[in-house]
Simulated assay, not measured.
Amino acid sequence: MSASASSPAPSVGVPSDVVARLRAAGCVFAEDEARLLVSAAGTAAELTAMVDRRVAGLPLEHVLGWAEFCGLRIAVDPGVFVPRRRTEFLVREAAALARPRAVVVDLCCGSGALGAALVRALDGAELYATDIDPAAVGCARRNVAEAGGRVYEGDLYGPLPRALRGRVDVLLANVPYVPTEEVGLLPQEARIHEARVALDGGADGLDVLRRVTTEAPDWLAPGGSLLVETSERQAPLAVEAFTAGGLVPRVARSDELYATVVIGTRPGPGAV
């Protein structure tokens, strides 16, 4: 995409050449991005280097070192999955379910954005998070430190303290759900600059989701819930997986954010 003579003039304080370079590189919100880069850069040389990285295709959040999520500034290191705005819907749904002083677990936590945002919305919650990617774990530890959360490196439930079994009130799992054959169709920012393990969900995109649902009842407290983001077309198969795992499922959708979340609740005592 190239700039045109009819393009709006940049705001005062935002160099027009920066906006022009970003527009030429295909950045749809070039002026907004330029404003963020200018505010983040300490010197002209630093600004040039940041613009160079953005024009080369690095996600804006990786250039800045942070992403905005649920009103928080979340640190995002190079290679770490960038939290998407649509996933704020999952956090809102989780907050509506959580009881005071809830025990929260964030699987496949990436930057730790979901757990950090949810705990901020709750009163006195305990937060535990896991990810298999060492870079993500290091990033998440910084993001959840203020909330007193603990982040463990390992595969799904594997590194969690055994004492959490049967005690988890809210289980967040923003699992990878892109089918393997579709990973190559993702935008370059994700395909090249985010870890494949955070994107590739197997043949139909639901491999990790099925593993999460199979073990979830062992970790959830009675009445506790698992929340997983998926696509609208994958939701029926995801519901089947939740049911097979012994959870009572429902699907929540946000047209505004184009988001689909499957929620599964562990039945309480006496449920049939």
Rank of each mutant, 00 (worst) to 15 (best):
E153H: 13
V151G: 12
A147R: 13
V144A: 06
L160I: 01
L127V: 10
A129L: 09
A145Q: 13
A147K: 00
E126D: 15
G158Y: 01
L164W: 07
P134K: 02
C139F: 11
G148W: 12
R162Q: 10
G154Q: 00
D131W: 08
N143G: 08
E146P: 00
A125F: 06
G158T: 12
P161W: 09
V144Y: 06
P161A: 09
P134V: 07
G158F: 02
A129H: 08
R150V: 12
D133R: 01
R162D: 13
E126Q: 13
A125K: 03
A129Q: 11
L156E: 05
A163H: 03
A129F: 06
R165C: 04
I132Q: 09
Y157H: 01
R141D: 10
D131L: 11
G138D: 12
T130G: 10
P159E: 10
G149E: 02
G148M: 12
G138Y: 01
G158C: 08
C139R: 11
L164N: 03
L127Y: 12
G148I: 12
A136D: 05
G148L: 08
L164V: 04
R141E: 15
A135N: 02
C139K: 09
A129P: 07
G149M: 05
G124C: 12
D123L: 11
A129E: 10
G158H: 11
R165Q: 13
Y152M: 04
L127R: 09
A145Y: 08
G149H: 02
L164S: 06
R150Y: 03
Y152N: 00
P159T: 04
R150G: 05
E146M: 01
D133T: 08
P161M: 11
G138R: 14
D155A: 04
A135D: 14
D155C: 02
P159H: 06
P161V: 08
L156P: 02
E146W: 05
A163N: 02
A147P: 00
C139Q: 12
L160S: 04
A140T: 07
Y128M: 06
L160N: 09
R141W: 10
E126A: 15
G148S: 07
V144T: 08
L160M: 04
G124S: 11
D123T: 14
R162W: 01
G124L: 05
A140Y: 03
E126Y: 06
A145E: 15
R150E: 13
V137R: 00
A125I: 09
G154D: 04
G124A: 11
G138K: 07
I132K: 07
N143E: 12
A140R: 05
P134A: 05
P134N: 04
G154R: 03
A135F: 01
A163P: 00
R150K: 14
R141L: 09
G124E: 14
